[in-house]
Design a protein around this nucleic acid. Structure first.
Length: 261
DNA sequence: TCGAATGTTTATCT
DNA sequence: GAGATAAACATTCG
């Protein structure tokens, strides 16, 4: 599920639930989500600290504490939930931060594809350096410069977190559909006009999605039609194409997004 | 039982 | 060295 807009929603959850609250206890229910760290060390490093202002970059969420930083990556099924001591356990709660004021912040994840890291300053810098510019805050020139280094297909480049951070499979399809670009086209061969439309589409897509806290399954977005094998383009009514591009299930409109030989 | 699922890493081709 | 591709990670769902 989580792409940039979802993670931004989790950042808001963390901020409103955790900021300035003390971490009373860290309850690791499943140590399998902790990387390079025993549950014991993880808990000890955090108990007694307070969360400060959280930061998001792409799909990464950094929970700062004034000491070590918790890096949260949500994989495909992770979420961050804020509730109270009264609320029931969920079988997929992997790490529970017991906070002051009866609040609980839960890292909940069914598939455990990614997880949590505890980072020092240096490691934090390294993580951020491995990422391209954040897709929501990068300006037009920055996006273009990021894409310039790639000769891959445009969908592959958009989803590559080291090129541009934040887009996943759904957002990439949505942005390409709005840009009228075939997902298989080479990013190196895009025209100035293509880049202009790509940037406009990026912001036209991310803005409402961030406000909604997710990629909204609206009927006038291509995302709302991706599960229908006979789906029609919400713009022109042509039958949508379904295929694997860049290793992922991809939906596009062959009429609006011509292959260009 | 098989395949696919909104993510990433790793190995292996081309 | 790129880039593309497939498998792997763990789990659920159709």
């Amino acid at each position: 599920m989580p792409e940039l807009p979802d993670v931004e929603e989790f950042r808001r959850v963390l901020d409103s639930c955790g900021r300035r609250r003390s971490i009373r206890r860290v309850d690791v229910r499943d140590g399998g989500v902790l990387h390079d760290m025993s549950p014991r060390r993880f808990s000890r490093a955090l108990e007694g600290r307070r969360f400060t202002e959280p930061v998001r970059h792409g799909k990464l969420l950094l929970a700062r504490t004034g000491g070590p930083t918790v890096l949260l990556h949500f994989g495909m099924t992770g979420q961050l939930v804020c509730d109270t001591d009264e609320d029931p356990e969920h079988p997929h709660d992997r790490v529970v931060f017991v906070l002051g004021g009866g609040r609980r912040l839960r890292y909940r994840d069914q598939r455990k594809l990614r997880g949590l890291w505890l980072l020092g300053e240096k490691e934090e810098t390294e993580w951020l350096r491995s990422q391209g510019p954040d897709a929501a805050s990068a300006g037009r020139a920055e996006v273009r410069a990021a894409l310039r280094g790639s000769r891959a297909g445009v969908k592959s480049a958009l989803m590559d977190q080291t090129v541009l951070a934040g887009l996943g499979n759904l957002l990439a399809d949505e942005v390409l559909w709005r840009s009228r670009l075939d997902p298989r086209r080479s990013v190196a061969l895009l025209s100035d006009e293509d880049h202009r439309r790509l940037y406009a589409a990026l912001h036209g897509t991310l803005g409402p999605a961030i406000r909604a806290g997710r990629v909204p399954p609206r009927g006038n977005w291509i995302t709302g039609h991706r599960d229908d094998p006979a789906g029609e383009c919400p713009r022109c009514g042509h039958r949508l194409e379904h295929a694997r591009v860049a290793g992922r299930g991809t939906v596009w409109c062959p009429l609006c997004q011509p292959a260009l030989s």
